[in-house]
Design a protein around this nucleic acid. Structure first.
Length: 454
RNA sequence: GUGGCUAUAGUACAACGGUUAGUACAUCGGGUUGUGGUCCCGAUGACCUGGGUUCGACUCCCAGUAGCCACCCCA
């Protein structure tokens, strides 16, 4: 056949082109706002992070629990609480066919508390330590590090009152990040128990009501003064920050047992050499917290950051929740941390991922007979523990070798008509391009030998 | 919910008020019908939607939508 000249392909006639255009203008779908697809290479980061989370949880004796993504809306309204934005503004809530109000879970703790109660886990040896990992949903405006579907790694300890539990959680979270080479600091505070907080709140209100002070607050804070005065403390408005400087601090109002608890926590953290910062303004947005609250924030390398850093995780103690949700009085604490944000940090730090695999052996085939034989050989090698790859759907050797190259195969085994007849296999070293003929029956031994040499 | 920025092939970017909207990478094909990575040649493939200004808009204006970012809040 004569060589094709570089004649131009005839342009499609206008009509055809228009037709095509019509076809392609059919509405196509795209992701929902704030939702992300995780594709091929990206997934390697996920494997890394999930593996680390699993490992950390297991080492410290946490056992995995999964809960449904959909729950009774009231579960969250009661536990997370109407004082939180999560419930009032951000929850995905629907009415199902039976008229039940159901919600996509916005966080893990309520479900796990439900699990503890529903399955009578107070009958298990205490404490009960749960490891949970999965998607959560919050209907917010998406932004850097904020998605409507996010993934959390969450640990909860039920039935342990002592400060060791708080510390263990903080330690795990801290190690989790350290070992992923993400530099973090723990922001920590104690918001006391119901009793001491009551006293403190009274003082706090008194303080803010002093002459002129209230009028200086931002509008949100004026509302908070009535609804949720603790939250005055972590307002980011400059004037509110100014105002709080002189405000009474809750640590000064802790009752004896709360103070002792908090001090013990801090002592442990000192001994464990965990980088923490006692932050008297940290209060957290959920209703159920008491005593220890903490957040995990990234430590930036240079002074590149403005003050508000995205928290990578947060948690604390919620001793009253189990009872409040209808269970026996049970002390508890937990934390959740965001995997998307964690991965973003890992990427930011250019932490190299381990190479996918080395010493991949690619199996190429030519012709129907050879393909069948390759299938068998492939299974044999796979069972023998070799990292084999193939492209049996392809016919052309060229394309198969391209594939071998793309995935970084060390060697290719080529099996064609000729080799089938001779009972041999072509062995190709992908770096050098050197090939040799080896006996089909001795393939495994030969591969072993070659791999050792490398 | 409020505000800012952006919108061009699969991706990353150009350009222009006026016939064929460029480049790189990716993809596909060929040079090599049993040989990849390099090289060479070729091909496929895009102006977010609607309105306005204009003789003429991908370009200018407005709106919508989407994306990114910030505030709020949080993982």
């Amino acid at each position: 056949m004569p060589r094709k000249k570089n004649t131009r392909a005839p342009r499609p006639k206008m009509k055809e082109k228009e037709k095509e255009k019509k076809v392609s203008s059919i509405k196509s779908f795209s992701r929902l706002k704030g939702m992300k697809d995780i594709l091929f290479d990206e997934y390697r980061y996920w494997e890394l992070v999930i593996k680390k989370a699993t490992e950390m949880a297991r080492v410290y004796g946490f056992r995995r629990v999964d809960t449904p993504i959909l729950e009774d809306a009231r579960l969250y309204e009661r536990s997370t609480g109407k004082g939180s934005d999560i419930v009032t503004k951000e929850m995905y809530t629907f009415v199902d066919k039976n008229g039940e109000r159901v919600s996509l879970r916005p966080e893990a703790t309520p479900s796990l508390t439900r699990v503890y109660i529903e399955h009578g886990m107070f009958n298990l040896p205490q404490p009960v330590k749960m490891f949970w990992l999965g998607p959560i949903f919050r209907h917010e405006k998406p932004q850097a590090g904020r998605y409507r579907q996010a993934t959390q790694f969450d640990l909860e300890i039920f039935g342990e009152e002592g400060p060791v539990a708080d510390v263990m959680l903080i330690l795990i979270a801290y190690n989790f990040f350290s070992e992923l080479q993400v530099n973090v600091q723990i922001q920590i505070n104690s918001i006391g128990c119901e009793d001491c907080r009551k006293e403190y709140l009274a003082k706090l209100l008194e303080f803010y009501k002093e002459r002129g002070r209230r009028s200086k607050l931002c509008n949100d804070c004026k509302k908070r003064l009535v609804k949720n005065p603790l939250r005055l403390l972590d307002c980011k408005e400059e004037k509110c920050i100014e105002a709080r400087e002189e405000a009474p601090q809750i640590v000064d109002f802790l009752c004896d047992s709360c103070r002792e608890h908090f001090i013990k926590v801090l002592e442990y953290l000192d001994e464990l050499e965990i980088n923490y910062n006692m932050n008297p303004y940290l209060v957290r947005g959920l209703d159920y917290y008491n005593r220890t609250v903490f957040e995990i924030v990234p430590v930036e390398k240079e002074e590149k950051s403005g003050l508000p850093k995205l928290a990578l995780g947060g948690g604390g103690r919620y001793d009253g929740l189990v009872r409040y949700m209808g269970g026996r009085p049970t002390p508890a604490c937990g934390f959740g941390l965001g995997l998307e944000r964690t991965i973003a940090k890992i990427k930011e730090n250019n932490i190299p991922l381990k190479k996918d695999e080395d010493s991949i052996i690619f199996l190429a085939q030519l012709g129907e007979q050879a393909r069948r034989k390759s299938f068998i050989l492939f299974e044999e090698l796979r069972r023998a523990g070799f990292k084999v790859r193939q492209a049996f759907t392809k016919d052309s050797l060229k394309i198969q070798l391209e594939e071998a190259n793309r995935i970084g195969a060390k060697f290719s085994l080529i099996l064609g008509q000729k080799e089938v007849m001779d009972g041999t296999v072509l062995f190709r070293d992908m770096d050098s391009g050197i090939q040799e003929i080896i006996n089909y029956k001795k393939v495994k031994e030969e591969i072993e030998k070659k791999l050792e040499k490398k």
